[in-house]
């Protein structure tokens, strides 16, 4: 059993069997992180490049930890300190890295499609760590693992995603993945933060938070990208917060045993209240823990085959 592609670019292109394999493998890797020696030799001698061209703490640290726990060697290439600021093109940077024989490239970029472009130009494994407004597959996978652990299964759960859907790669990855695994997905946002044609993705669209939360098993709060306010997509942060912030009071509309998730970083008091973020329904810390396990699973499953498959 393995993944079909050499790369992980989107959840959209994964089958439900492949998603299941990644989640099962991740569950096994979770145990490794509880040992006193938190390391297995599975990727010994492999080189993983973390190529982050956009600010990131948790995703980069999570990938770095995942690669280290698999005994891989890691290179960090970040915009500010790379030749890209001297005018080198992305493709030339890739060729340079490839000439040093790397095995995997973890890419975060502000433009959608950059990981795909790079994947087509290299034999190395490319893992998308978030590209523009497109997808953030490992986030979607860690969210699905969290739901599976908390709820027992993904199938049949009602998941409500609240916030800036238009600019959210996290939302896109989750919508694709959750639907493949049999969950019902709702989105809730003001119309200006919903992309045109979102219904075509098979989701139910809500503009009223209380209605959207009714019978919800999983409340998924997205970060409000505060810079969007400058584009007049919503009048004021205060107004957005009054209508769409998930507070203890609003959460009562969801199922009693509903869980609350957030991909981070949070704007406390804007899209989520501290009471909810730190409350009993919150599984936000679990998401972070699962992030390392899912990234270990992805790095491990995509490590590539050198010889013939002799099953």
């Amino acid at each position: 059993m393995s993944l079909k592609s050499k790369d992980l670019l989107t959840i959209e292109e994964l089958s439900s069997t492949e998603i299941q394999l990644i989640l099962d493998t991740a569950s096994s890797f979770k145990e490794v992180s509880t040992r006193s020696v938190k390391k297995v030799p599975a990727l010994r001698g492999r080189t993983v490049v973390l190529f982050f061209q956009e600010p990131s703490t948790r995703t980069r640290v999570s990938f770095e930890l995942a690669a280290k726990r698999l005994s891989a060697d890691i290179l960090n290439v970040q915009t500010a300190s790379s030749s890209l600021v001297k005018g080198e093109t992305l493709i030339d940077t890739l060729k340079t890295l490839e000439s040093m024989t790397i095995d995997a490239l973890v890419v975060r970029h502000k433009c959608s499609g950059v990981p795909l472009m790079l994947a087509n130009m290299t034999n190395a494994t490319v893992i998308n760590a978030g590209d523009g407004f497109h997808e953030h597959p490992t986030q979607g996978l860690l969210d699905m693992l969290t739901i599976k652990e908390q709820k027992g299964k993904i199938e049949g759960q009602t998941v409500t995603i609240i916030g800036d859907i238009t600019h959210s790669r996290v939302a896109r990855s989750n919508i694709h993945g959750l639907q493949k695994m049999g969950a019902k997905v709702r989105v809730c946002a003001p119309p200006t933060l919903l992309p045109a044609g979102i219904e075509k993705m098979g989701v139910e669209v809500y503009h009223d938070l209380d209605k959207a939360l009714k019978d919800t098993d999983v409340v998924y709060v997205l970060r409000l990208q505060l810079e969007r306010q400058k584009k007049n997509l919503f009048p004021t942060i205060r107004e957005y917060s009054q209508l769409y912030s998930v507070t203890s009071e609003r959460l009562k509309h969801a199922k009693k045993d509903a869980i609350v998730m957030h991909p981070g970083p949070m704007n406390r008091g804007v899209e989520i209240s501290s009471g909810v973020a730190d409350g009993p329904a919150s599984v936000i810390d679990e998401q972070v823990t699962n992030g390392v396990a899912v990234r270990m699973a992805v790095l491990y499953l995509l490590k590539g085959e050198k010889g013939e498959n002799n099953g």
């Binding site: 059993m1 393995s2 394999l21 099962d24 493998t25 569950s27 096994s28 979770k30 145990e31 490794v32 297995v40 030799p41 599975a42 698999l70 491990y300 490590k303 085959e305 050198k306 010889g307 013939e308 498959n309 002799n310 099953g311």
Partner: peptide, 23 residues
Amino acid sequence: LDITFYRDDTDTHQPDKAPEQTE
């Protein structure tokens, strides 16, 4: 023990199922 992550043939061997947990 699940020894999958310690195998010496991970380059050529395709496991037929997802690894299990070491307990």
